[in-house]
Design a protein around this nucleic acid. Sequence first.
DNA 1: ACGGTACATGTCACACCTGACATGTCAAGG
DNA 2: CCTTGACATGTCAGGTGTGACATGTACCGT
Lengths: 175, 175
Amino acid sequence: MSLRHAVLGLLERRPSTGYELTQTFDRSLRTSWQARHSQIYPELAKLEAAGLVEVVGHGARRSKTYAITPAGRAELRRWLVEAQPDRSQRNESGLRLFLTPLLDQADRRATYQRDLAHVEHELTALEELRSGMEPATDPEVFAPQVELGIRINGVLRDWLLEQIKRAGEPEGANQ
Amino acid sequence: MSLRHAVLGLLERRPSTGYELTQTFDRSLRTSWQARHSQIYPELAKLEAAGLVEVVGHGARRSKTYAITPAGRAELRRWLVEAQPDRSQRNESGLRLFLTPLLDQADRRATYQRDLAHVEHELTALEELRSGMEPATDPEVFAPQVELGIRINGVLRDWLLEQIKRAGEPEGANQ
DNA sequence: ACGGTACATGTCACACCTGACATGTCAAGG
DNA sequence: CCTTGACATGTCAGGTGTGACATGTACCGT
């Protein structure tokens, strides 16, 4: 039930409407957890019924602002600190990388090129985010997490460049 | 429909029974895609009905060995090369890392320590795998992919060590 | 002969997630 | 005034994935 805790975590940072949460999932959380509004609104209703969040205000266009309750805060902490982490993941890009060696040289090279373009795009976005951040305090994003994203994408970029170089060498020399 | 292509990819490497596929998912693919036998057996039946795989032998204990067909091979290639990759993922560890800054110093330190233990365990397993591999040919695992796993886990280890060191410094200095 | 364990396949209820459908609000620009 | 687009919430059918239940086979050690 990670969705539940993802929502609690976002509301711990700041009270929000379902619409705002949807955008945060799409913008900041998409590389670790995604959720559509069709999942978020029912989840907020369930969390409210369970007393873990509450409506703290009504805004324009029928919007409802939710905030985390003490019970919700306790449940979030319990999950982060005490619950056994589920290390399994579903990552289509990882699966593709795992299967790419099955392709012939030309196809392999092309798919690595495509991945490289994507990684460099991510890297640029993260570096812009880093340079635009105030050095000490930013309630929206956490600097070390951005730094980790940059490092992982850097490793991916270097690895892809090596694979592309290899795939340009005489066939049979790969692997 | 990644499960379908994961199964096709594994059968492209080598004809296998459902039981063997289940083990491969659990041992090699768990960090990018997981599947239980309760999903694999019905998927094999669907793939067979679609003509993408076929039963090529019956073994002991009612086992059936499946192999990929030319149509299956074409579908696998199409998916790897032409299909638009789905970059979204579901990664509970990533979500936890994203939310960990919300914890107080002691809890944050403890969760990073727990993650570090796990990363070092992974790293050891991957390094053993690498050292046990023949330099040029190994039909089971692909050396560059193992190398990538080692590098990513190395980045994670370094980052976690930095965070743990920071969390030992005076409160308020973090972030 | 018997018990334990790994091998091997299958089904099913339930929960989770997606994409499509549905409805309505508010502000800005032509 | 009217249209466009962002804001805002909600439902639902159908697909995907999980854990439990179910059944049976082959080998090994005692």
